[in-house]
């Protein structure tokens, strides 16, 4: 069994690289999209609110895999062709960004009204109010749910298997296809690796949580 692990681990490590890269890039995109959409959902202008709402509902109403396929197989019809990596980052980032926008929106709404009123009394502009008063407080509420979202995102990256991007899942599957007898070892290893990455991410999120709440929460 040790021999088998020694045989499979090196190629799987390469896959981990792709999975981590994919997770990192799509997390950045997802967080950006989440903030943009979350703020748009709270805009003064009904048109902005309407468009962002529609966008979020369309993304949430179809499923990630369908979106992945759509970007990969349908976009070329529009004359836009992406690499598998770019497709993965775009689809995953937009999808989890749409879910994340709900976190941003509800966290901002959860900041007590008195904060807004105080900021108005201090003659801060709308923009200053958001940047200096509301968002720093909302951020504390956002971290734990964003942590969960990032774990979901990590799991979601495994779907790039369908568009033949050589991530951890895809590589393990090709290993399995040539070594049927070792399926148990390969898939157990695969599950353990995902579990490990998720645990590391959870630790990271806890650290961020501590930093963000330091001196703010009793």
């Amino acid at each position: 069994m040790i021999g088998a692990i020694a045989q499979y681990l090196p190629p799987m490590l390469k896959g981990i690289g792709v999975t981590v890269q994919l997770t990192l890039f799509s997390s950045v995109l997802a967080l950006t999209v989440a903030f943009l959409l979350g703020l748009c959902r709270l805009s003064r202008y009904s048109l902005v609110r309407g468009i962002s709402y529609t966008f979020v509902e369309i993304i949430r109403g179809t499923s990630l895999l369908v979106q992945l396929f759509w970007f990969y197989y349908v976009m070329p019809f529009f004359g836009v062709e992406f690499s598998a990596m770019t497709t993965g980052v775009l689809a995953i980032g937009l999808n989890y960004g749409a879910y994340g926008s709900e976190i941003v929106r509800s966290s901002i709404l959860a900041v007590p009204k008195g904060q807004t009123e105080a900021a108005i009394a201090l003659n801060l502009t709308r923009w200053q109010r958001m940047i200096h008063v509301i968002i720093p407080q909302a951020l504390m509420r956002m971290v734990p749910p964003f942590g969960n979202l990032l774990i979901e995102l990590l799991k979601g990256t495994s779907l790039v298997y369908f568009i033949t991007l050589a991530d951890l899942t895809y590589i393990s599957m090709t290993l399995r296809n040539t070594n049927y007898a070792d399926s148990l070892i390969i898939f157990t290893l695969l599950l353990l690796i995902y579990f490990l990455i998720a645990q590391l991410m959870t630790l990271g999120v806890r650290w961020v949580e501590k930093r963000v709440t330091a001196g703010r929460l009793a």
Binding site: I151, L154, K155, G156, S158, L159, Y161, T169, S172, M173, R176, F187, L190, L191, Y194, F195, A198, Q199, T202
Partner: peptide, 9 residues
């Protein structure tokens, strides 16, 4: 914390 697709496999 592990993907559904891997569990299905």
């Amino acid at each position: 914390s592990t993907p559904l697709i891997v569990q299905a496999f």
